[in-house]
Amino acid sequence: MNARFFKLPVILVALLSCGFVVGCGKGDQGINVEGSDTMVNVAQAWAEEYRKERPEVDVRVSGGGSGQGIANLINGVVSMANASRKMKPEEMELAEKSTGKKAVEFVVGQDALAVYVHKDNPLDSISLEELAEIYGEGGTITKWSQLDVENVGCDNGEIVRVSRQSNSGTRHYFSHAVLGDDRQLKLGSNDQSGSKDVVDLISRTPCAIGYSGMGYATEGVKMLKIATKKGDEPVEPSVENTISGAYPIARPLLIYTMGEPTGQVKHYIDWILSEAGQKIVADKGYVAIQ
């Protein structure tokens, strides 16, 4: 009964949006970049700064996750993909099959993956083994008391695992770094779709623990120091510790293109790797490559 009245607008909107898609797809001179949500801040800052240098090149950046960027690179929708994890071998294969070119990787920075808890949580440090028991399939740690902390803000003492959705490079990296290649993440975690969402949720949830890039820290959360093994000296996530390699869960930030980049894409990547581009990396809370 209502449907009758909704149809016409729906059709109109559909037709209009078709028009827009076609309109945008043609005569396009810019660079489309998509991918890692961890990198979206720095990627946007690059695009803005680059515009000052070469205003004629329009760089369009969107997030969505490393998986999404890589998928759309393979689908031929974007010319560059940001990724906070390496491309999987099967993705490489698919990319070669569908585009006829090899994917090329550029390391454009580094990021320390911080483990966050609510600001009122008394916990200060955690070991990778403990993280594995919290996040891993068949893990034994489900209560804060098992970590010898009295988390007063959390009434029933349960650890709420905050994680990322399946296309996230951060999730992929975290899983491999903490659990190794053979163990899976335990289901039932709260899978957020953005790096910032993870921190937002933790700042509103005293029982929560989660991981996200160290640039996303806010006042409502606390970054934990990480020890590789229980009993080791825990290391603070910081630029120095990432550069020195002391912090155990840091990963490279990557850009992928299909085939060796040419023309404006090549110029853009060269610029990102230059001093000007790397300064932005450091400004945004990530670690520049030396």
């Binding site: 998986g67 999404q68 296309n167 039932g188 975690s189 709260n190």
Partner: peptide, 26 residues
């Protein structure tokens, strides 16, 4: 957005629609 069968009203869950929305793009 948590994949689990809820045992109480205060458990997080994930719905069919949300799964499609969150994952199709990737």
């Amino acid at each position: 957005h948590a994949v689990q069968i809820p045992s109480s009203l205060t458990d997080s869950v994930r719905t069919l629609t949300a799964t499609i929305a969150a994952e199709l793009g990737e």
